[in-house]
Design a protein around this nucleic acid. Structure first.
Lengths: 147, 147
DNA sequence: CCTCTTCCCATTGACGCCCATGTGGTCCCA
DNA sequence: TGGGACCACATGGGCGTCAATGGGAAGAGG
């Protein structure tokens, strides 16, 4: 069971409440539990107007990439600006909700609803219509336009 | 808990008050406590218009970097000028605020608001708009890929 | 004597923690 | 097979706590 279930799949759209919270889909939450993920690392996607969310290992992978070049080089400085300066740790509340901060709203263009999209080892937050359009574009075989 | 959190991550923008003080984000302050950092070493970033802040170990790392290049090169000369001639020690007040001196204002172009940017082992002070532009530019460049 | 700094306290708004409600779906049983 | 109890999950909101901010007053230094 755990083998198949322990990855983020499919998508779901939930509403943001008056306090700016949104429920993470239960199927995603169970994956987080199976993977032992308690701290969520959130990062602006490099291509799409979406927020990528995963465990601390997601950050580790980017840091290994940064470590592979000269740490004082402009290249490392630039990557750190994105990965460290643009990333945030968050945690869910007791009911499995997360705060939709301005950081998320502004970058993803989210206002009242959030679409959760599974990406196997992590998941993403999208503005619902933007997700549908990106998916339609992908289905048509065209190259999606970056933000 | 402390393992994951004990690095500077994400960004936040705070206001400078009439006395020229600004609150360091609580998440950054807790990292300073975990690392036992009481004296803050501040210097100009080599690439961006930003002030880098960390513990005394930050100075050590920069000195090692200078030592690793030809000591008579223009590059080493320039770095030494910034690190030794431009660096300054500061401490926070009881409420966790720091004074925004002219040294900081002039170099970073800061006037009324400061953006704190996490850089893992240190953090930086940016003029808010400049930070957003630098991040957008970094994202538009070559994309870091997870290992 | 005046200015700049440091220490202290007040305010307020945001966030975390908690419990309540509603709704859709499922399972059981008549 | 239709009805009803039950349950999981999404959602709503109260309330206490803490961070960010503002400003007064005492102290140091020119």
């Amino acid at each position: 069971m755990s083998g198949v279930m322990s990855r983020f799949l499919s998508n779901a759209t939930n509403r943001i409440d008056s306090k700016g919270r949104v429920s993470v889909p239960a199927s995603f939450r169970s994956v987080l539990v199976e993977r032992g993920i308690q701290e969520l690392y959130c990062l602006q996607d490099f291509i799409f107007p979406a927020i990528s969310i995963g465990g601390p290992d997601l950050l580790d992978r980017y840091e290994r990439q940064i470590a592979s070049v000269d740490p004082f080089s402009p290249e490392a400085n630039r990557m750190s600006l994105l990965v460290h300066g643009g990333g945030v740790f968050m945690r869910l509340d007791a009911e499995g909700r997360l705060m939709v901060t301005d950081f998320i709203r502004d970058f993803a263009g989210i206002s009242t609803e959030v679409t959760f999209v599974g990406r196997s080892d992590h998941f993403q937050l999208w503005q619902p219509q933007a997700f549908h359009e990106a998916q339609a574009a992908a289905r048509a075989g065209r190259v999606p336009r970056p933000a």
